[in-house]
Simulated scan of single mutants.
Amino acid sequence: MSTDRLAHVRDLLAAHPLIDGHNDLPWAARDLARYDWDQVDIATDLTGRTHTDLARLRSGGVGAQFWSVFVPSNLPGSAAVTATLEQIDAVHHLIGRYAGDLGLARTADEVEQVFRSGRIASLLGAEGGQSIDCSLGTLRLLYVLGVRYMTLTHNDNNPWADSATDEPAHGGLTDFGREVVREMNRIGMMVDLSHVSADTMRDALAVTEVPVIFSHSSARAVCDSPRNAPDDVLESLRDNNGVIMVTFVPAFVSQAVADWRAEAWAAAPAAGVDPKDHVAFSAFAAERMAKVPVPTATLADVVKHFEHIREVAGIDHIGVGGDYDGVDVLPEGLEDVSGYPRLFAALADLGWSDEDLVKVAGGNLLRVMREVEAGARQAQQTRGPSLVTFTP
């Protein structure tokens, strides 16, 4: 790609917000320093410790970031809620500490307002239904605290939805799971279908009254990972007017890396590791890499997913969800959050227009946010908070 192309892309992202759907810096800060932002000071160069700091966000043209308030899905219910609240608290402290560079955004309009102020709009996304402990009241309070999407599962099934990486227990969503989706629609929280099983994807798409998102997933036809969306789901997503935010995770974009991960997943139990345990499996995989080198994923692997999803779902249904600080290794050319311009330049090299790039960068996601917000206003005129309780 040419220097001129890169410069043009940087100008484009300076004028139109690039909204990344998923960044796990809050969990990295918990792991590294128990949320001590003095020790994980993003105003300094954190290269080698994290994928994310302010200088690299600026270099990457990031205009808005969904900070993931992830907690492991194997935490017991009340502990998961507490840990999620701690994550939310940490993100609010992060935004407050760096108020000259970050600004809280809860609506599409606020994203644009913060972006126009020269700051990076900061949003919150909860990763996994374990965070609500089967309580719609807890779901509603997460919304009050600023959470604007919830991923229905993480690596484990929960009592009302099947995960992509667990043995099916419900055949998709249970009746309570469908009620969770309806209540998310009513309050204006986006339904996120990353991490869920294909049947859960299909069930949620059949129930939802508004567009849904995938905050960090790619195309299963290009890389056969259960974390990716099959083509029939991409077609349904098109009809739903939703967005899939293509992720950069090597095991979800490169078949060679996916195969390596599948072998590690199969080997983990013999080593006493539950592969669904995010923390334990990450440590196991890192140790295994020293003995069995992992193949290298590339920016070109990622681009193939953008091309395929455009062909199946269309340009109006694509976004970006890097998953920085959620994995140890990223594809060559996308090693940290400064890499987005290289991705957009690669798409431009393939003939994607400026209008296409603006849609993918954030225009499509802003449209979904506005439709979800409008749907919530309409739903609240006809129904109040759901009083349905979970019954095992």
Rank of each mutant, 00 (worst) to 15 (best):
A169H: 11
L139E: 09
R238P: 00
H93W: 13
W67N: 02
I315V: 05
S163M: 07
H16M: 07
G384N: 09
Y98H: 03
N23K: 03
T107P: 03
V327G: 12
L32H: 13
V69K: 13
G146N: 01
A376S: 13
S236D: 13
L104Q: 06
N23D: 10
T153N: 09
I19T: 05
A280G: 00
E311F: 02
I315H: 07
D349W: 04
G272P: 12
A361G: 10
E183A: 08
P72W: 01
D277C: 08
A83C: 10
N240V: 06
R10A: 10
V320S: 15
A15M: 01
V91W: 01
R261L: 15
L13N: 04
G60K: 02
D109P: 09
A379Y: 11
D24R: 08
N185F: 07
L237S: 04
L104N: 05
A264W: 00
V302A: 14
A33Y: 12
I309V: 15
G188H: 03
A264I: 06
H8R: 08
A64M: 10
I309D: 14
P275S: 05
V302L: 14
G48Q: 02
A80W: 05
V253E: 14
H195M: 13
I244Q: 15
A361Q: 09
H317A: 11
L75R: 12
V388K: 14
T296V: 12
M189P: 04
N228R: 11
L25P: 09
H278R: 09
T165W: 00
Q39N: 14
A33W: 09
M190I: 07
V111F: 03
A43R: 08
R288L: 04
S353E: 03
R148E: 02
D259I: 10
Q381T: 11
R220I: 07
T52H: 01
D349Y: 05
A268K: 06
R97C: 03
A221D: 15
L234H: 08
L366C: 03
A221G: 15
D11W: 00
H170G: 07
M184K: 03
D199F: 07
A126D: 03
L136T: 04
T50A: 11
I95T: 06
M184R: 02
Q378H: 11
G63A: 05
D45K: 12
P250C: 14
I318E: 14
K359Y: 04
A262L: 10
Y149N: 00
D45S: 13
D45H: 11
S122N: 02
L330A: 15
V360C: 13
G242L: 02
E287F: 01
V111Y: 04
